[in-house]
Structure formats: structure tokens, C-alpha cells
Nucleic acid binder design. Sequence first.
DNA 1: TAGATTGTTAATCGATTAACAATC
DNA 2: TAGATTGTTAATCGATTAACAATC
Lengths: 216, 216
Amino acid sequence: MKDSKDKISISKATIDRLPLYFRTLRLSQEEGMEIISSEELGQRLGVTPEQIRKDLASFGQFGKKGVGYYVSELIRNIGEILGLDYNWHIAVVGVGHLGWALANYRNFDSLGFNLVAMFDVDPNKIGQCIKGTEVFHLDRLKEVMEERTIHIGIIAVPEMYAQEVADQLVAAGVRGIWNFAPRKIKVPEAVRVINEDLSVGLSSLSFYLARQTPTN
Amino acid sequence: MKDSKDKISISKATIDRLPLYFRTLRLSQEEGMEIISSEELGQRLGVTPEQIRKDLASFGQFGKKGVGYYVSELIRNIGEILGLDYNWHIAVVGVGHLGWALANYRNFDSLGFNLVAMFDVDPNKIGQCIKGTEVFHLDRLKEVMEERTIHIGIIAVPEMYAQEVADQLVAAGVRGIWNFAPRKIKVPEAVRVINEDLSVGLSSLSFYLARQTPTN
DNA sequence: TAGATTGTTAATCGATTAACAATC
DNA sequence: TAGATTGTTAATCGATTAACAATC
């Protein structure tokens, strides 16, 4: 138990590629594909076939030699590896433009994430609904979170409140945090944090463009 | 010229850390800090001091031995490395929830990115403004882009239109694309693409949580 | 069977960490 | 000068790529 569940020696790079495989496989399935080779899959998403085989091999043997991978089977397998078969309850804290956008993001539903609450402090926002999910006052975070057993909290508040909200989420028993505030937040080790810093992407783009011969 | 401008042998990991250094340095500056050591900076953002020194060393010598780094000087230097001293013109294509949120994202201004246009096909959205910037019909993309010399296009349209919009952006002479659609887009080599796939972050969070001993 | 494609081991490449001389 | 901290070289670690035996 200790080894199989707790010790994860899989590289972060591999884990970040799995969702891409998952997505592309689903697309292929929609196109009616039943079997796919690592070659074909790799071509579709710009990854080498060896990389794909290696990544998958960390978790088991999902393919058939001389044949390839059964699409629906591999989707199910990767889904299980990623824990997408679990019905995760998520909540958005901070219903500004970004929080609003995230709450409306359709792809999350299709991955099995279930938005069960939103929180804000603005009286005008309290009580508003998105797809049947309500905005509560931040004061009720703990109460609502416990009632609805929320697993994942999404921080979409201004930077200066990020740590405060993180503390409240932790106190309310959240297991993971997806942090959009451009600031490092401190949480107990047991709580997983994924930082999604949007300025990194744009800045790195700027880096590469600044080094090209400009065309305009 | 060939070596200094074209060949970039800096690792992607390093480039992705630079914006974090930049941000943290600015924060430190606001707090009145004038000199910072790699030790202190590292502590603030959870990176080892050696890593920081190594990263910076790829671009030059910015510190003083026995002293540390002058905060304002290092901010200027990293800003230049990232090309943030250039006045980038950006445009958002697709003014849905996400596009709207991105157009309103305040951090971009402070990094020197200038939103100069938005595009959509919805007649209700055409003509709307955010901070003085207008939403144009997608049909006018090329015309408006050329008139305003837009360097970077942000794709925030539904997945199925992503490639189409990418083609239009390329035709309009864009140099870089920041793609939020969860799909690989094909562009000529000269155009830089950064993919920002939001489902990756959430899925990887799910992966780690699924492997923990659950607390609820 | 012959051709195809996986799973896995070995070789290479790249990035991080450790150590320390240089020097403020 | 002594203490501190950088910049850089060497050692380690990890991830990707190449190669190929296993087998469908």
C-alpha cells in the first residue's frame, strides 16, 4: 500500500502530458477511430511515439504489440490514472472576470469536475447562479464547503487576498488548490497546490519574440 | 548577430522562471527592499539560490559578489531579457467569458502589454469596450490588425474554431499566439505559439489527489 | 509466416545541485 | 581584513531518445 499509493516516482512532465493524451484520444474517438498507434497519436499532438509509450509504461501495459492501443480502453485507463473517474467537487473563490470564466468553463464538466459552490464578498454577486450553482458569501465558506464536501478550491481573488483565502480553504478541509493568483501561497504539506500563473505564458512569449528578427 | 539573436540555448525551464523572479522582485521593491540575495529571493518563491544564480548567469553578471543583487537593477535587467521593455500590442480573439476575463486582466498592463483590439462574431458584442478598447467583427481582423500593428494574438474561441482563427492571425501578420483552446494549432515556424491548456492543471491536481489517502 | 507495433533496456542528452574560487 | 555572496565549474540526477527483443 505504501509503495503503490503514496510513493509517486512519476515525473511531472509525464503527468502533464497525460491530460493531452486523454483529450486527443477522445477527439480521435469522436472521429470514429477504434485503434490508434503511438505513432499516430504522437503525430496528432506533437510528441514522439517513444515518449508516449514510455509515459504509459509507467502505469502498466495498455497496448497490444503489433496492433496499437484500443482507443476507448486507453481513454478509460488514462482517465483512471488521472483520477477523472472520481466525482470531484470543486468551488471557485472570487467571482471576478476570471472566476466567472472558470465557473463557466465547459471542459471541466466533461472531465468529471463538478462545480458545487462559488464564493465572493460583493453583495451584488451573492445569490447569483451559474448552471444552478450559487454564489455564497465568503463568510460561509467553511459551512458550505463541509456540507458539500468540496475537494478542490480554485483561487481567483486578487493577489493580496490569496493567502487569506488559501488559509480559509485549508481550514475548511480542502484537499487541493488551483491557484490563479500570481503569488506563492503557503499551505500544509498534505494540501496540493497547482499554480496557474497566466503572466508566465505571456512573458515567455515576449521573450521569444524579442529575440526574433522582427517582421513588424 | 546569428549567435546572439537567433540561437537560443536557454532552457525553457529557465525562461519560465524568469517571470516569477521578475514578479517577486517587484513585490520586494514595493516593500522597500533595495538589495536582495539569491538566498532571500529563493526563499520567497521556493527556488534554490543556486538555481537562481544559474538562471541569471545564462544572460550575464547582474549581481555583486559579497553583496547580492540591486533590486531595481535586476528588475530592469530581467525585464529587458523578457522583452517587457518593448510595447507589445496584443489582441483578444473571442470575447466569451474567458476572452473577457483576459481582456480585463490587470497584470498584463503592468507587464507592458497593450490591449489594442478584440474580435468576435456576436453582433451584441461588436462595439463594446473594455478600458477604451473596442470589440470588432472578426471579418475586420486583418484590416484592424495591420492598422494597429498587433504583435500577439490571444485565441479564446471555442476549440473548433481555433485553427481557423490561428490561420487568420497568421495571415494578418501576427508574430506570436497565446492559445487557450485545448487543441494543437498549426502555424508557420516563424510564429511562436504558447499553449495555455487549463484542463492540464486541474487534471494533474486530480492525479495527485487520487493517490493520497483521502481525508474526505 | 511476415509485417507491425508495443514494452523495456541502454545510451544520450539536459537540467539541477553541490562545491568552491573569485571578489565585493 | 573577515564575512558574505556571487559566478562558474564539476558531479549528480532525471528525462528523453534510440534501439531492439517480444509478440500480436
